[in-house]
Design a protein around this nucleic acid. Structure first.
Lengths: 148, 148
DNA sequence: TCTTGACATAACAAAAGAGTTATATAACAA
DNA sequence: TTGTTATATAACTCTTTTGTTATGTCAAGA
């Protein structure tokens, strides 16, 4: 999903993170948001557009003011994607050597310490995939990614 | 923290997210990682460096191969920062109007539905940074951001 | 030792990002 | 109507990012 690009990208800028932090305190206007920064108003205006495109904020028009507030869409998408990494890290799927060692152990049948509730990512599962790691016939400029 | 910049920035690229998704399946080498992409090896190599600088992966040297695996540091930092947004959204701190309406209501003393454990962000609080909610006497040209 | 495989690094071009000033627009106030 | 405030858009510059090719290094084999 291309939106993950814009969401993560939006968050990669400290000014924009500061804006979000301010909005976490409550809805406010563009001028209010711009004030703490030594930056022109158009610059802030564009930062807001970036955040809006990323689904991280919402704007409404109220007379001549355009109050902004946080939106959950962008955060949700990001969180959802990150969940995959969290799971992998929690279950040490990142340590292939570790897994291999375990496979070789006499009681590998018992399975690891995977709590039964957690989604199971097996190394080798096609699904988790960065796209389709193997076949790659089409569009020379497409990248295999999780989020399509 | 400047590292949030690099962490979010690292995640904003689809190729790098795909690499992370692959690593979620297990530790693997650079060539392995590069294979699914129609991209030169140096390009992948640099993506890996970006991920490493962001604290999202770790590399070790094993003979002529350099297996990579996920690291939790980067993810933890990101998660920690995002927590602020989650809290704000959960508690509707983003809706100033909503809060104001509530203040005016006869029983505003009861306080909102803030669960007692949650950090309290009051709109109007001078401190914009939910990261370090209290003290923050900074130089006039610093940007009010969570991560310093 | 010579060669090959698995990387890393350097140099460079193209594209994207971030900030600036100038200017347009719409709502308000006088 | 006119001036002012709040904000958006445009045009432009400077810097960073991303990918490319060329090349260097180190380990493993023959």
């Amino acid at each position: 999903m291309q939106n993950l690009d814009s969401a993560f990208s939006a968050l990669s800028d400290p000014t924009r993170r500061a804006i979000l932090a301010r909005l976490a305190l409550g809805e406010t206007t563009v001028m209010e948001l711009a004030r703490p920064f030594e930056m022109s108003q158009p610059a802030i205006s564009r930062h807001l557009r970036v955040l809006e495109n990323a689904g991280l904020i919402l704007r409404r028009v109220e007379g001549s003011k355009h109050p902004c507030r946080l939106a959950r869409q962008g955060l949700d998408e990001i969180d959802q994607w990150l969940e995959m990494l969290r799971t992998a890290l929690e279950n040490n799927y990142d340590r292939l050597d570790h897994l291999l060692a375990e496979m070789k152990s006499p009681n590998h049948l018992g399975g690891k310490d995977l709590s039964p509730g957690t989604p199971t990512y097996h190394p080798g599962d096609k699904d988790l995939s960065p796209g389709t790691p193997t076949s790659k016939e089409k569009n020379p400029h497409e990248q295999p990614d999780t989020e399509d």
